[in-house]
């Protein structure tokens, strides 16, 4: 065995990095997130380049409802905190608390997705179709790609929860939950830029 971790005293303090598999997954996850950053950078750049090309259709400043965006931001930010608390509970071998925190994370994530679907529905009926203008396409692609990431993250966490519902914290699942929480934080990091660069910039009249 490449990993000699002492398990006789109980769960190691850093269970997600106690095995070689966990260490590898940790590094690979960061490598993946780096690639995701660059991918999102291309979509952000495209949106910023095309944001004034409305082709006679509605602009975001005419449509955006800041209170809804603020509410969505709070949902996602809070879900990021609950997944942090979940990982902190995992390190203490407190499986039930971790499970509850991740369930709350999933519920908040679904709240976010619901708001986003409502938002897109509203924009579509206000005359902003996907092919209305270059701005519309780049907006829906950027924000929709983020929404897809949220959906994927939800599927990921739900799969882990249903598979390990009664498993307790083990050296097999600790790094899996940790990787999912890293991905979830990354979604929140991207959202910070979306609400700043997409919504607030438009509402601020820039």
């Amino acid at each position: 065995m490449a990993d000699h971790v002492d398990v006789s005293q109980g769960l190691p303090a850093e269970p997600h990095r106690a095995t070689l598999e966990g260490k590898n997954k940790f590094l690979a996850m960061w490598c993946f997130l780096t690639g995701e950053t660059i991918m999102f950078a291309t979509f952000f750049g495209t949106f910023l380049g095309l944001r004034h090309q409305t082709a006679g259709g509605p602009a975001l400043a005419d449509l955006v409802a800041l209170p809804l965006v603020f509410f969505m931001t709070m949902l996602l930010l809070t879900s990021s905190l609950t997944s942090v608390l979940g990982i902190l509970a995992m390190k203490k071998n407190n499986f039930k608390a971790m499970r509850n925190y991740f369930v709350i994370t999933v519920l908040l994530g679904f709240g976010f997705i619901g708001c986003e679907i409502y938002e897109f529905y509203h924009y579509y009926h206000a005359g902003l179709g996907y092919t209305t203008s270059a701005f519309a396409s780049s907006f829906y692609t950027l924000v929709g790609l983020h929404g897809f990431h949220v959906l994927f993250g939800l599927g990921w966490i739900i799969t882990l929860l249903s598979r390990y519902w009664n498993a307790g914290v083990t050296l097999t699942n600790a790094h899996k939950f940790y990787a999912a929480s890293l991905y979830w934080h990354f979604i929140d990091v991207i959202w910070v830029f979306i609400f700043t660069v997409v919504y607030l910039l438009a509402a601020g009249g820039a």
Partner: peptide, 16 residues
């Protein structure tokens, strides 16, 4: 070792 990987722990090994 392999079966120990999926065994839950009854306590944490955290020091004070």
């Amino acid at each position: 070792m392999a079966e120990e990987l999926s065994k839950p722990f009854d306590k944490s090994a955290m020091t004070l």
